[in-house]
């Protein structure tokens, strides 16, 4: 569990550099604007409201994480943004234009592995350009560059089944980026990876983000991941999925693993934890367990 907040630091307190960073960030053009978004699913048992009145904006080259309890509508939100699901109310604007249907201007990386098994790594990365009708050596050179960028140049002619989970997701990122999308949508892309690979992937992603003109919207349910990666964190609450709070992460850039124990980091984590696990609910975490061992035979 999260340790209690040290020094009573408020997550809203920002150092001058961080404050300056956010001022600049908000002066950048809005890439994605979500306006009063709502989604209900018709089910046999009646309508399920997955999202209600969701409003937020993502600025150019911002890294935003979406976090929330399971079933609060995170996937539904990102699928609407990608155009894979149609909203019930509200609208989504990309660079001020309403989006409808999927398109290469919004790259997506899924939690499940979605590389095309019949294509090699390079052919997977070239898939988007090929759909646009581009082919030839320039596309191939371009694809190689993206593969280099995710550190897999040795594997460009391998098939997906020859890659590890982390490598597959790196190819998926390269494949999405090869389309030069305005925004990269990621739905728990590292959810299926082990802790070590996951940490490595987070670092790769931060490096990519830093060096490219790319805006990222990233879904996670891992508090550390959210704080470590984001400029801002959109916290959703469940039933119905509504924006609870948009947190400006007070941890300065560039990010490093040492920052995990800084007061700002811990305070932010603590706040998110409060939001997604309210105090009243934590009682539910205690199982109604009767004693089943002998008196005195205790472990704590």
């Amino acid at each position: 569990m999260i340790p209690p907040v040290i020094d009573n630091l408020d997550y809203r307190e920002q150092s001058p550099e961080v404050k300056d960073r956010f001022t600049k960030l908000k002066q950048r053009p809005v890439v994605l604007s979500v306006d009063n978004l709502g989604k209900t699913f018709p089910t046999p048992g009646g309508e399920v409201t997955a999202l209600k009145g969701v409003d937020f904006e993502v600025f150019r080259r911002e890294f935003m994480c979406v976090i929330g309890p399971s079933g609060c509508g995170k996937s539904t939100l990102i699928r609407i943004l990608a155009g894979l699901e149609v909203e019930t109310n509200g609208q989504v604007l990309l660079d001020g234009n309403p989006v409808a249907g999927p398109g290469p201007d919004r790259g997506m990386v899924f939690q499940s592995y979605t590389l095309f098994p019949w294509l090699t790594v390079k052919q997977n990365v070239m898939f988007g350009p090929k759909m646009e009708g581009k082919s030839g050596t320039s596309v191939e050179a371009d694809a190689r560059q993206w593969i280099d960028l995710v550190g897999l140049s040795q594997f460009e002619n391998s098939y997906p089944h020859q890659l590890s989970g982390g490598m597959k997701q790196r190819v998926a990122i390269a494949r999405a980026l090869a389309n030069r999308p305005r925004i990269l949508l990621m739905d728990e892309p590292f959810g299926a990876l082990d802790a070590q690979t996951r940490a490595q992937m987070q670092n790769y992603l931060l490096q990519i983000w830093r060096n490219l003109d790319i805006t990222i919207l990233f879904i996670t349910h891992d508090l550390d991941e959210a704080v470590y990666l984001s400029d801002r964190i959109l916290v959703l609450k469940a039933d119905p999925g509504e924006v609870d709070e948009i947190i400006e992460v007070p941890v300065p850039h560039p990010r490093s693993l040492d920052q995990f124990i800084t007061p700002e980091f811990v305070a932010t984590k603590h706040r998110i934890n409060q939001l997604i696990h309210p105090e009243s609910e934590s009682k539910e975490d205690v199982l109604p367990f009767p004693r089943m061992t002998a008196e005195g035979d205790d472990v704590e």
Partner: peptide
């Protein structure tokens, strides 16, 4: 055929026809 493959292809810009020729057909061949 895995639905996510079709969704991924759509987010990569495949249109309906390309879904059939570049995803469905090669995807089911084996």
């Amino acid at each position: 055929l895995d639905l996510p493959l079709l969704e991924a292809a759509q987010t990569l810009g495949a249109n309906q026809r390309q879904l059939l020729t570049h995803v469905v057909i090669p995807g089911i061949l084996p």
